[in-house]
Simulated scan of single mutants.
Amino acid sequence: MTALAGTPISRDPLALAELYHSGLGTSWKTQRGAVAAFARFTPKVTDRALSRAITVSKLPPPVLALFETAGIWHETARHLARLVWNHGPDVLRQRATGIDPLGLHWSEIVALLDGKDARPPRRIVRAIAPLTLAAEYKRGIEEGRWTSMVTAAAASPAWDRTALAKAIAISELPTEVLQLFELKRLTYDLGSILVKMRNAIGESELTARAKKILGAPRRRTTDQILAELLLVRPEQGVELAVRRGKTAMVFEFKVPLDETEELLTGTNEIAALVQVAMMNVRFKRNADSDPRRVKARWGDSADKRAIARRMTAAGRSLREIAADLAVSKTTVARWTAGQKQ
């Protein structure tokens, strides 16, 4: 099995066990020595967690294969270790051959391995994290289980095609940007904001800003990371007002005179930030009555044309621009004629 994408190693039993075995005999001699070496990890790696991870990693391949999609999480490992103690690996191997894991939650698979009836989890389970979903989709492509998002959604009834498309887009963000949120919960909403930022200011600029943040490590909240990516300085008290003129919307920035030197920035940068804001406003304003379905509507083709040119200048491909703006590649090519890709 593959490690759980976007999950801290201390909460990924198989990745933790793999790390332990890779250093056994060289970096550490015992499990206790490994736990001491893992002291820098967050969340903390305990003796019991490492022991469970090692136990689970030694399960027969047919048993591990049942969790290829559902995943083996920190809590999953606790239950699997109990099953090994109660039944032994041979019994679990035999039971695994008669289980079809498609569409099952990990707790249901555990129940079947325990010889009980599979029951859906009592509590509402969070939707699969975007990076985890994207990793599973790409793994399915490599293994030939599906060839596109359409066939993947058909093969996995629990997957939503729209969520899958968002997850893939989020997973394609620059590595440096994703690293900023390694120890935080990267949700679909947060990921969508980051994707819009990349589209507005360009991948190279977003990557450069992320590298700058990574180069000055300190504890930051998610909002603080986003603020730094947008070059916002909330501690300096900038006042922003938006009013409607006769023919246009007017954005007014009010900055104390003694701070203007630090806050003045290029018009291109401000334009990109305003563009992101307007995209969000239009996106939310045209929400469907069903909160699970949102229709993104643009003002007119002039808006799309301007954004397409910005995205082209930022190095985005015709295919990516067409997908983001819901137009054909031919239309994008016509709008951006004369610009360098």
Rank of each mutant, 00 (worst) to 15 (best):
L131M: 12
R126Q: 04
R40S: 03
L164V: 07
K329E: 15
A308D: 12
V332G: 08
G315Y: 08
P62K: 13
S57P: 09
W73K: 13
R52P: 07
L64H: 08
V195G: 11
F253K: 03
A210L: 12
G245H: 04
V281W: 01
A271I: 04
D12G: 08
E108T: 01
W335T: 02
A248M: 06
G88I: 14
A210M: 07
D290I: 02
L194P: 07
A271L: 06
A306S: 10
Q179S: 13
P8V: 11
K44M: 08
T76A: 11
V294M: 07
E176A: 15
R218H: 08
L318E: 12
R198H: 05
D100I: 10
T207L: 10
T162Y: 00
D47P: 02
A337R: 14
E252W: 05
I321Y: 05
E320S: 15
F41M: 05
G25T: 01
A241D: 04
W106Y: 15
G6Y: 01
A53H: 10
R198V: 02
S171C: 03
M311G: 02
T312N: 00
T187M: 11
K212A: 10
L231H: 15
Q339N: 14
K329P: 09
L230Y: 11
H79R: 08
G245W: 03
L231T: 12
T260R: 12
T222E: 13
Q275S: 13
V84G: 10
P8M: 06
G23W: 02
K138V: 04
S317K: 05
I99W: 09
E239V: 05
W106T: 01
R78Q: 11
G202L: 02
K254Q: 01
A81D: 11
A17W: 15
T175S: 15
A65T: 07
V232A: 10
G115C: 11
E320V: 14
G98M: 09
A227S: 11
P89F: 09
A70K: 08
A248L: 08
E269K: 15
R126T: 03
F41P: 00
L206T: 10
L83Q: 03
P121R: 06
S51N: 05
W28G: 00
E108L: 03
E172D: 15
F251A: 10
G23M: 02
R126K: 09
S107P: 04
P13A: 13
S328T: 14
R95Q: 02
M149G: 05
G33H: 00
V195I: 14
A135K: 09
W85F: 10
